[in-house]
């Protein structure tokens, strides 16, 4: 099968059962995307598929042959960090670092959703206006569990990027 990851086409010969997550981690050496639960219950495996954030553990690699997949490695590298990565670094939006790639990719996808005017459970109105206050960010990021509990700093990091319009 053929997958396009971070703009690069890759030919793979995989067991049909291989999840997108395991394809990345076990077969493409893209280990930045993490496995925390393998059941869509933690968000550590978040990637962007055609710009939308999804749990890569709960989809089969073979189902994404026509898609553009972006992983944490595709956002930025040390020395050339994505603004969201830089903001997490400065705000200490992580500790052990294991949920972090998922948080960052999720945050990037989430800001895009907010820009499109998508509401959330925390939105007072459904009128298509979104103001990303702390409660909105927390709700929208609740699909990414951080057991070290960097939540306050994660919220700060994301709010900062959003306010600077950097992502």
């Amino acid at each position: 099968m053929r997958l396009t990851i971070n703009g690069v086409g890759q030919e793979l010969d995989l067991d049909i059962r291989t999840s997108l997550l395991d394809a990345l981690r076990d077969h493409l050496a893209l280990t930045g995307t993490k496995k925390g639960c393998d059941h869509g219950q933690c968000g550590a495996c978040t990637v962007l598929i055609n710009g939308r954030r999804v749990n890569s553990c709960l989809t089969l690699a073979v189902m994404h042959e026509d898609d553009e997949i972006t992983t944490i490695e595709g956002l930025g590298q040390p020395g050339n960090l994505h603004p969201m990565q830089e903001s997490f670094l400065q705000h200490d939006g992580f500790q052990c670092g294991y949920c972090t790639p998922g948080q960052i990719v999720s945050a990037v996808g989430m800001l895009d959703e907010a820009k499109k005017g998508w509401p959330s459970h925390a939105s007072k109105d459904l009128d298509g206006t979104v103001s990303l206050d702390n409660a909105e960010i927390s709700e929208r990021m609740s699909g990414n569990i951080c057991r070290c509990s960097a939540y306050p700093n994660i919220v700060d990091a994301i709010r900062d990027v959003n306010e600077k319009g950097a992502a």
Binding site: G40, G43, V54, N55, S106, G109, P119, H121, S142, G143
Partner: peptide
């Protein structure tokens, strides 16, 4: 919006 997470809803 009350269900699951942003990633799952996507």
């Amino acid at each position: 919006l009350a269900g699951a997470s942003g990633q799952l809803r996507n």
